[in-house]
Design a protein around this nucleic acid. Structure first.
Lengths: 158, 158
DNA sequence: GCATGTTATTAGGGTACCTAATTAGATGGC
DNA sequence: GCCATCTAATTAGGTACCCTAATAACATGC
């Protein structure tokens, strides 16, 4: 294609300037396409796109505030309010005012929410595992080794 | 945290059954969060989320049909029709009937579309490069080595 | 030449975001 | 104590993006 390195070099050196350009061109396309595939994998679980990350976040961090959840999921506060309101009327979470700072609303899973969170996570792991079966062992390993770096990349607030 | 691999590091071998589970839990969360960050990086370019991948696809493959674009971007045909219709009225693409199979509509960039595609791609690469500056060299390398596997993962039609 | 499949579009609807404005509570002078 | 100012959350209103179902136009095989 736009080859300039030696033909038998399958992986350019990581110090090359072309690496950021490669990543900038290819990774966002991968993101949007994989994201659209993922969209179809949520509905069968009975959980939608906005709710799922909140459920799993609350498994790890019960009592998070609405602001904290919005920041973590990279959405604005009103968007998270809407998600939480829906989840509350679905019986998945309960909201409780903070005693020390009464502006804050702390969110926690109900028993039903906790069960659904675990079930949804398991279902999604299964969906993902089925896809991983189409990859070679070394491809899975490569993705696995990149996970920490990708998580780091997400946390950068530009 | 767990950022280094010490000798007694209990990190599971790549053949472990826990690897697919790890990926299934963490990668989709990364995808949705990074996707939402990316969303904000499109508007300043004057191109929206649905249009961008089409523009870059057409750079590489002029004369693609609407169906081909829809398949590649993992959306349904009517969704792609709407994107192309909008892009046509924006003067970014032109549609031309295929002479051999007159059901098909072939799509190609206009000169304006081509300029915008190149500018948008450059802008996004710059946006991405700014983020990559916050990562270590080895983290960038890890993501770079996983790119091919991720692209392969996207192409699987479940 | 007619049944069947494929390509593209139109119509209608739903989800997931956003900004701007409002309410309620905290905080720091004075 | 009281006011200016900041922050947390919500409400209201709007937009972007994607879907299913139905329809029109063309291709293909028997």
């Amino acid at each position: 294609m736009q080859s300039k390195t030696s033909p038998e070099d399958p992986a350019p050196s990581p110090t090359s300037d072309s690496v950021p350009s490669e990543l900038g061109q290819r990774l966002p396309l991968i993101m949007s396409r994989l994201g659209r595939s993922l969209r179809h994998a949520y509905s069968p679980i009975g959980v939608n796109l906005g709710q799922f990350p909140v459920l799993t976040s609350l498994l790890d961090r019960p009592g998070a505030t609405v602001s904290e959840l919005a920041t973590k999921e990279r959405v604005k506060l009103p968007s998270m309010t809407a998600v939480i309101t829906q989840m509350e009327s679905d019986g998945l979470v309960i909201k409780a005012g903070d005693a020390e700072d009464r502006r804050c609303v702390r969110v926690a899973l109900t028993e039903h929410g906790r069960e659904l969170a675990l079930a949804a996570r398991a279902a999604r792991v299964a969906w993902f595992a089925a896809r991983l079966n189409h990859l070679s062992r070394s491809e899975v390993a490569a993705i696995s080794r990149a996970l920490g770096a990708l998580e780091h990349l997400v946390e950068i607030d530009s």
